[in-house]
Design a binder for these strands. Sequence first.
DNA 1: CTGAAAGCGCTTACAG
DNA 2: CTGAAAGCGCTTACAG
Lengths: 351, 351
Amino acid sequence: MSRPSSSRASLRIREVAEVAGVSPATVSRALNGTAVVRQATREKVLAVVDELGYRPNRVAGNLRRQQVQMIGVVVSDIENPHFTQMVRAVEDAAYLKGYRVLLCNTDEAPAKQREYLGVLIAERVAGAVISPTEPGAPEIGELIDHGAAVVAFDRAVADRRADAVLAANADAGRLATQHLVATGHKRVGFVSGLLGIETAAGRQAGYEEAMAAAGLPPMVALGDFRVEGGRRAAADLLARGASGLIVANNLMAVGALKSVKDAGLRVPADVSVVAIDDPPWAELTDPPLTTLAQPVREMAVAAAELLVGRLEGRRSRPKRQVFSFELRHRGSCCRPPGAAHARVRRSKNEL
Amino acid sequence: MSRPSSSRASLRIREVAEVAGVSPATVSRALNGTAVVRQATREKVLAVVDELGYRPNRVAGNLRRQQVQMIGVVVSDIENPHFTQMVRAVEDAAYLKGYRVLLCNTDEAPAKQREYLGVLIAERVAGAVISPTEPGAPEIGELIDHGAAVVAFDRAVADRRADAVLAANADAGRLATQHLVATGHKRVGFVSGLLGIETAAGRQAGYEEAMAAAGLPPMVALGDFRVEGGRRAAADLLARGASGLIVANNLMAVGALKSVKDAGLRVPADVSVVAIDDPPWAELTDPPLTTLAQPVREMAVAAAELLVGRLEGRRSRPKRQVFSFELRHRGSCCRPPGAAHARVRRSKNEL
DNA sequence: CTGAAAGCGCTTACAG
DNA sequence: CTGAAAGCGCTTACAG
């Protein structure tokens, strides 16, 4: 049982050494197990450490060892369930390996990304998982120059030295489109994400390709990967007569569902909806949402493993892993309202 | 425009000083603005810094300054939307003040909490926002001994020197109960949280008090604050004939809704449900969920402000702020099935 | 197996 | 306004 003195806060390794009757070097060795220490000496030291409540100052250790057991996680917004899951999985893996997680939200703002990357460089973190807003930011290369292991998540980075864990975004757009087309839809609208973001562009490209292959004209409305933009874009597409909606991410799906309701329409009777991303609430909506799910957890684990692999010194050429989406059939798609169905129907009541 | 040399990674302040023709002290002063530097000198220094791509090593600075601009955020699980919101709001406030956020998930495991608190002490963080799993852990006091500002969030800590931002949990239990009782329910069940967690205990106490005041017998089933425990506990209460369910947190609400569905019952026709916590998906469920919402964002901002206040040196006796819940009427409550209604009704279809 | 000494890369009294 | 020197608290070659 430790019974720390009240002044433990200012304790340095020297005090511990004096009390234990050894040198600071021996205390360090006993504590870190970095060299052989006589059993009795070690026990004495540890007893004194415990008794005094000594807590080695890691900041000093980090400087001396030229090593910081910390990794940065850079995402647009941890409140996006996609990134929440990712961050959690990375934290788990990091924790097991003795690394800490520094959380950085960029809000898709290049300036904020740059600033946070600057912080990661300055703090000399051992590595970073980055879902870049600006994939070509020079700070990413700088971070790598400084010896950090970098894994791009969701979106590639320009620097070729980084590992990457990506999802097959074009496939997602294509699969969603093919699903709606096969169900009988001809007027399939796409609620797109922020222009210039790789995941958004890929998903849209897959959609356009599949529409072209089906001989159908594309209908795209620009969203912003957020709830409100999704609502507006979906409203636009509904006004243009879309009977099926593909929504490029989970936040915009919330907006799109609202928009359908606002228009007095019903899912799926009047409008079929497929969302890309599979948030935890997809099963809870009315009706449950058909989605294209990416294996976020697996992807995060892969990212963490790539990172830890490099942190532990395994060298190899940069790796790029691409994960597949999976269509999860739930209740938000059916045949479009045709001859047998009224085009627009009022929702029964709002409750 | 900077055109950094390829060896910028190993640059130290000394090299910069040599190139600029000044001493390291002057470079430091020019960079930090901690003392007056002649205009021309400063410009020369900054030009060289930019040209060489010099990035001061913050680990060294932290050690020298005896100050780390980092705060720890300790929660059970960032995937719980309640904590996701909290962490995000704290990160925002921290970012504005120049502090970084170290993310710590404890999974309600005292051992993990202790280990992470040990990390925060060792890293000599400036402060921490803690939603404790073990409110009496000695590491909390140690952290404060080491000069860190500590704010307890959601749950109080034993150490009296910490600030606290809490919610009126007993009120939440009471309000939920009174709402169901006023709606006509007599068999109101309570899906409780983990025994020993303050928020769980408070919410349950409010429920029991309100039931007693209404002359009704309490019906409690033990959950665990997670989805699966909520499902089991709700199933138990339904089997015992509950017509109304109060669920002690948002994760268990997901389980409780599943459980109602599994039993072939419908919300609210057969069973009314009130959830404590107001997750983002509460509006999306079928029907939308009536909840007791706490102002998480406001609470997180309050926590961050208390923290920053102490970090910036404002001393005062520990503060304790208690926030109120608000009943958000949505669609998951109505009169219990009485003479006019069949007790059990099959759900129409599952789709 | 252990200690004395150097040094990680900064910042900051101190002196001028 | 600027520089030389000390020192933050560790860890680790080096010597014994």
